[in-house]
Design a binder for these strands. Structure first.
Lengths: 261, 261
DNA sequence: ACCTGAACACCGTTCAAGT
DNA sequence: ACCTGAACACCGTTCAAGT
């Protein structure tokens, strides 16, 4: 019953860039990476390739748009808590800790990857192909905001956020529940079997070449991806708060103004 | 003048898997990703596609082999310091610190990426496509060895090393000096201009959507990739040694045995 | 302005046939 | 065992032509 007063002039124009991106995500979700072809799109949308290229430019742009769309919804559906200009920072474990916020962002991406297995590869592909494109930018923004309220001096915001984002993307990259080109979505049994096989293979490696791998074969077989993902986040957060201890009782130092000359 | 006593039986067989992998690396270095095609290989090696598929299986396998080869040399050319079963751990900044070792491994990969720009994307692609393939395994081993001598309890070896590796790969992924499909290798001037353009674009973003990005635009323009890469490593290392303080004077805590029941 | 659909220049991969 | 080279089934992308 939404009253579309004027926009509905051209009802015929069913094909929009938005609809193409949506369909691309559907295809990727359904059949996985490499199933997103222009021809598959045309048949799903009942058009020709020319129509798609009128809206989209090229295939990489479409992949970037699809990735950006999924990332945006993954980060937007979280309780955003946009401002309250970051006044009180409690020392202990209050509910709205910046640490919690960062963990929430990270988990949002992690869960998006498990929902859209193709996303893992695309996140890092976008990171390398377009290091400051919309995908990376969006993630940076979401991670960076809570970093500001973490007690990190402004001069270290960029470096600190980079470290978090880089860990986060590296971790989600490996955590892809990739069944490759299989049509079967990876079940837990599949995963357990995969880990068993890998673990066994590790124990048969040459002990001279891979002593460390052999030593951790058992741990790797038993590990839980999500749990370890969070442990890594906490490890990095510990590093941050150790290097930049939160202002407790006395204010840090700067009585003198930062402009030296 | 190397005396090849017996191996030279079949001099005719010039085409080996090794030679194909070498040529693949050459092609990738010269013309970049996407220039590695079977046809390009056949013309460089003066054969047909069948000859290549006799040795190689498929294209992904070749890319993995090329990546593994470059990674292996990058990590092998470092002074390996293979054992001396990790006896004394000095508290201060001794030369052979495990921290130094980890930094050396990380820088080895970082430099390999600047030498082979295609490597950045391939490292993360292998990480997602083949999470425990030879490429990841090799990196894990090199990072994990010094982790053992860092004072980390054995139960945390896997998680700790994972965190380091994930950061490391995420960071090198973004640090690709990617000129895209350009034939011109990215000069420093190109890079500076790229950063300038990006920084300007950031300052024109909607302040409501991207307040953090705007705040760090200047820092990002001035940052040095290699320096920041190391800072990130140190951040993670700080987290590790904070959570697992090295055994100084008194042993940490565990007087009681860890098996409770 | 938006869409059609044939056509182009390329891929990776296979496979009968050779030596 | 190793290699040849034609052939197959697919790509992404373009572009004259339509409405």
């Amino acid at each position: 019953m939404a009253i579309r007063t004027r926009q509905s002039q051209r009802l015929r124009q069913v094909l929009t860039r938005e609809r193409i991106v949506e369909t691309a995500v559907e295809l990727l979700d359904a059949v996985g990476e490499g199933a997103l072809t222009v021809r598959a799109l045309t048949s799903r949308l009942a058009t020709g390739p020319g129509a798609i290229y009128w809206h989209i430019g090229n295939m990489n742009e479409l992949l970037e748009a699809a990735t950006a769309a999924v990332v945006a919804t993954a980060l937007d559906t979280r309780p955003t808590r946009p401002a309250e200009p970051a006044g009180t920072i409690e020392a202990g474990g209050a509910v709205g800790t910046p640490q919690d916020e960062i963990r929430a962002v990270a988990l949002g991406l992690f869960d998006a990857v498990t929902e859209h297995p193709w996303l893992a590869a695309q996140l890092v592909v976008q990171l390398t192909r377009n290091p400051w494109g919309p995908v990376t930018l969006r993630i940076f923004e979401s991670v960076g905001r809570p970093v500001r309220t973490l007690g990190v001096p402004q001069g270290d915001w960029f470096t600190t956020t980079s470290t978090l984002v880089h860990y986060l993307l590296g971790a989600t990259a490996q955590t892809s529940h990739n069944t490759g080109d299989d049509t079967v979505p990876g079940s837990e049994a599949d995963r357990a079997e995969f880990l068993n096989t890998a673990s066994r293979a590790w124990q048969e490696l040459d002990p001279d070449d891979y002593p460390f791998i052999q030593a951790i074969a058992e741990q790797m077989r038993e590990h839980d991806d999500r749990e370890q993902f969070l442990t890594g986040i906490d490890l990095v957060l510990t590093g941050i708060t150790t290097l930049h201890p939160p202002t407790t009782s006395r204010p840090p130092a700067p009585e003198r103004l930062p402009s030296p000359e």
